[in-house]
Design a protein around this nucleic acid. Structure first.
Lengths: 135, 135
DNA sequence: CGCAGTCAGTCCGGAAGTTGGACCTACAAC
DNA sequence: GTTGTAGGTCCAACTTCCGGACTGACTGCG
């Protein structure tokens, strides 16, 4: 779902609160035809919803569903990675503010012990790997 | 970097510990030619490294770099999402065990207050959005 | 030695996905 | 009635992807 070109940037912009077709077109740089098909695909995947906000003229907007909001940890983790590992500090990045009042710096922790999950501090086992089937 | 087809599954398998070309080929299902170019791309992005483990015959293996391990939170967050939101419980998924002994259930928390970051409990501001430039 | 098998690829032609520009419908403003 | 905006669709070029065949450098077996 996220492995398609433009899907990740598209979701990011929607998370940032942009919800209009033409905003998303210019922000992502995706051709409008592709944007249409990505929006439809994400909609049928259940992560965004299309809402008609004007009947006449007919106007639609796109917002995250609850399942879409659940992708926030993924996007935040990716944001953290990007800021740490790419020299391209893409302009003033968005600032996330948590309800606690502080600027939101997301950290991935182990639920059991509460410690941050760092490289090498965990083991992967099992990992039976389904062959990937594409329809 | 992750928006290319097969990149995410590929990184997952490498995280699971598979490091040989032909393993990765069958696990991801990607054609070998594509796999080659993805591995090269990820290598030049600095998330994986190619190591020669045999001179004769020449054999290479692929492992995560430190920057690659820093992607673990992203992959873990995605794993959590997938398990919660897709009916396809893809066979026995891999089990991650944290050094604390418990099975690793990753949670994204706010660094300041330590609370889990949930939908609607934060605000995005700023979000100046560079137009995406593709070379 | 000769033959089979494995590993890490490359090569190639057809299929699929992407791109940007033109075009369309439905309005609103002047 | 002309211009502008929003949300698209259509299409022909272009790029990527696919899967199967092929290669080179070995190892193992009898």
């Amino acid at each position: 779902m996220l492995g398609d070109s433009h899907s990740l940037p598209l979701l990011r912009e929607i998370l940032y609160g942009y919800r209009r077709f033409s905003e998303l077109a210019t922000l992502t740089g995706a051709p409008r035809s592709l944007l249409t098909s990505r929006l439809r695909k994400l909609e049928s995947a259940g992560v965004i919803a299309r809402r008609r906000y004007s009947e006449r003229p007919p106007r639609d907007e796109y917002v995250l569903t609850d399942a879409g909001y659940d992708l926030v940890p993924v996007l935040l983790a990716l944001k953290v990675w990007g800021e740490r590992h790419t020299g391209e500090h893409h302009q003033p990045t968005a600032v996330f503010r948590h309800r606690c009042g502080a600027e939101l710096h997301p950290v991935v922790v182990c639920e059991a012990c509460g410690d941050e999950v760092r490289p090498g501090e965990f083991e992967v086992s099992g990992g039976t790997h389904p062959p990937i089937l594409r329809p």
